[in-house]
Design a protein around this nucleic acid. Sequence first.
RNA 1: CGGGGCGUAGCGCAGUUUGGUAGCGCGCACGGUUCGGGACCGUGAGGUCGAAGGUUCAAAUCCUUUCGCCCCGACCA
Length: 581
Amino acid sequence: MRFSQAFLPTVKEVPKDAVDASHVLLLRGGYIRMIGAGIYEMLPLGQRVLKKIIAILREELDAAGCQEVLMPAILPASYFQETGRWDVYGDVLMRLKDRKGGDYHLAPTHEEIITDMVRRDVRSYRQLPLNLFQIQMKYRDEPRPRAGLMRCREFLMKDAYSFDVDDAAARKSYATMRSAYERIFTRLGLDFRIVEADSGQIGGDTSAEFQILAQSGEDRIVACDACDYAANVEVAEARIPEAEPPKEADMKPRELVETPGTKTIEQVVAFFEKEGFGVEDVIKSLVYVAPKADGESEMVMALVRGDHEVNEVKLARLMGVDEVHLASDEDVGRLLRTKVGYVGPVKDALPEGVSIRVVADHAVGSILNGVAGATKTQYHFRHVNFGRDFDAELHHLRQVGDGDECPRCGGTLHAYRGIEGGHIFILGTHYSSKMNATFLDDDGEAKPFVMGCYGIGVTRLMAAAIEQHHDDDGIQWPLSIAPYQVIVLPLGNDEQVAAKAEAIYEGLKAKGVEVLLDDRAERPGVKFKDADLVGIPLRVTIGNRGLKNGVAELKMRTGADAEDVPMDEIVEVVAKRVRGE
RNA sequence: CGGGGCGUAGCGCAGUUUGGUAGCGCGCACGGUUCGGGACCGUGAGGUCGAAGGUUCAAAUCCUUUCGCCCCGACCA
């Protein structure tokens, strides 16, 4: 492609609304343009990158035995009504009506449709296993689209769905997809971790996220430095340190202390620190509301050490609900007759007749002579002990963080930020049983398909790759997904230089290399800046200087230095480099 | 949904407090000089100031309503 003919509008100034590196560089580099919140156009360069990613996906999925299908983006409401997601999805679903007033929506994901597709035509175990995938736009009215392609309302997604006869077979499909994903992410040039994760609304018991490590990632994960344990902090566990429970003999008498103006842990610590108490002596008591499916809700008191945070996903699992949220000041006042900030678990201090479930993190069980709220506004207790002063169910309840011990091997966990690039699930019969999708097994019985689903956010990967591969000057595409592999820069207006560049351009094209020739009548500085911004992996520069010595300059986008290559070898050298030789 | 910010030329912004002929930089077009890290000089095109209503002799500027975008939080296969 000739730069002079390319629709490749690069921009010098940073667009006002872009913050993250990938967003800024995709806009500046002429890859995408925004049309509305979370809605983008792909310009030619962006489309080329997408096609590269898609090609890798297709190759690896085909190799894994998957078959590609295409499903409608616009769906009648009936399918999501069958599984209840018409209601569950709430405002995230882009709903619309046709001229007759019928309910439709844009597909945020396709489990129902694929299940329907399979139940129509698959009747026998002999037709299984089956793994179907699609690559297409999906639609979610996100509460907050952000960061360019990172979180969009319309986004390109690859989803695969497996159908098996039983759990064992489903696990096999899952394992196959897991290794296919490892190959895919590796080929995309991404530094990633496979982490244990919460399955969320989609259901199912086994799932893993493919997290792309990046400072700007929305997710927080931990990974062990000694074994391959890695998990999203939502579900991460840490080894419980072998701590002696407090001995009766060491317990001091509990005392009520007036502590005005100490609503936060920080204030409590400041108040008690001259007496030798630290933040790890404080018992943080938080009241949560767990809304049950039947509309009722239960209150629960969750205890963690002062320097720890409650893991709300784990708390919700513990309570058997989808989610929990902190109780409002009013809720707390009504139940415990105290202000938020002075809540505590001490039994004797709770208002008469009040009973509340109390759950605590293991670390709370081993605090000796701790500090806790007195369930009385402006008061705390000192010398509070588990067992003597309060009871609680001990669980893994806190958020795991950097420096915690690995639950598997005792190694050290490190914290990272990640971008969720893929998520694979074993769904079981969650959808198939609701939708009465069954096959006849070899014993002659009708059984629901055992399903799995496997998603990759294609447009998001494009952004994630940039988050991981850029510098101050621009993008540094991995060779496997770069829009062009090589950019040829003739400098100055020397006709011989132009002719030489032309020859190299043609030579590379003839060898199947994807080349961009910057034949614009621009000054050298402009061409260099644009080449760096756009992020083409290999750069061949031809100038007067080199021409005199019979050499072209070859530079990797990621490298610091350029090397001189004899003019008559440059095509072959570059072609080899592109082939990875 | 809560908090904050912003809509003025293709892009980035000033002008709004204190109403009075809409400006700057980049980009774009033309001419000239220049040519290895976003050159310089000259000329020029380009704006119903997000939209609607109101106040006023007069509104980018004041008032009301409304739409959109960004950031933080809540939320999120």
